[in-house]
Amino acid sequence: MMKEHFKDLLEYNLHFNQLLIQNFMENNLVWSEKSKSLLNHILNAHQIWNARILNQRTFEVWQINFDESLLKINSDNFNNTLEILNQKELTEIISYKNSIGKEFNNTIQEVLFHFLNHSTYHRGQIALLMKQGGLEPINTDYIFYKRDL
């Protein structure tokens, strides 16, 4: 049941990240550098958390990816998290080091909730920056996503 809930939230996350990436690609001359940085950060953080769980190489927290790679990174992040949901227990504890090398332990469930919440937070910041830049912000509220299904 909880895994299905996380799958639903991951689909929501994938959907609105895709819409933001498409908006960025169409309006990249209007998007601020801060918005571009935040968009990349959302994708990087998701990749980092997946990689920590799967013991893979991580991106840098604030790296700027090639614009053409953003949709693939978003899709790969989604697919890797689905793999985690299929192969691991949500209660499994992972040990990892943060970006400054300090070690922590958290359950996979806590990690999934964290990066989904983190993504929502930064999408809200991007919406504000889009509005300030004269663009129509994308309403990325979860309930609007569910209403449109």
Rank of each mutant, 00 (worst) to 15 (best):
N27A: 03
N55K: 15
W62K: 09
Q47N: 13
N77E: 06
N80A: 11
A51F: 05
N98M: 11
N50D: 03
L54W: 01
Y96H: 05
S99Q: 12
N80T: 12
W62N: 11
I48D: 02
I64R: 10
T58P: 02
R52S: 11
K34H: 05
W49D: 03
S37M: 13
S69A: 14
S99P: 03
N86F: 08
N98D: 15
L70W: 06
K72I: 11
D76H: 09
N44H: 06
N40S: 09
L39E: 02
H46R: 09
Q63M: 15
I53F: 02
K36R: 13
K34Q: 10
L71M: 15
E26G: 08
I84V: 15
L90V: 12
I64M: 10
T91S: 15
I73Y: 01
K97L: 13
R52H: 10
T91E: 12
K36V: 12
S99R: 08
Y96D: 01
N28H: 14
K34W: 02
L38N: 02
R57D: 14
I73W: 02
S35H: 02
L90W: 04
S32I: 04
A45Y: 00
N40P: 08
N23A: 12
E92L: 07
S69C: 10
N65G: 06
K72C: 08
R52D: 04
L54Y: 03
E60W: 03
L43W: 01
S35W: 02
Q63D: 15
E83F: 15
I93D: 08
L43A: 06
L39P: 03
L29Y: 05
L71Q: 12
S37Y: 01
N77T: 13
I94T: 09
I73C: 05
I53R: 01
I73E: 00
N50M: 06
V61D: 05
L85K: 03
D67W: 00
S95K: 15
Y96F: 14
I93V: 15
I73K: 01
D67E: 13
N74H: 03
S69G: 05
N40V: 09
K34T: 13
N98C: 11
S32H: 02
E92V: 06
S95W: 02
N79C: 08
S32W: 02
S95T: 14
I42R: 00
N98V: 09
S69N: 14
N74Y: 01
K88E: 08
W31T: 04
S69I: 13
W49S: 05
I94G: 04
I84Y: 00
F66W: 07
N28K: 15
A45E: 01
D76P: 00
N50Y: 05
N65Q: 14
K72A: 13
E89S: 11
Y96L: 04
F78C: 00
F78W: 06
L54C: 09
N27W: 02
L85R: 02
T91L: 12
E26N: 12
W62V: 07
T81N: 07
L29S: 12
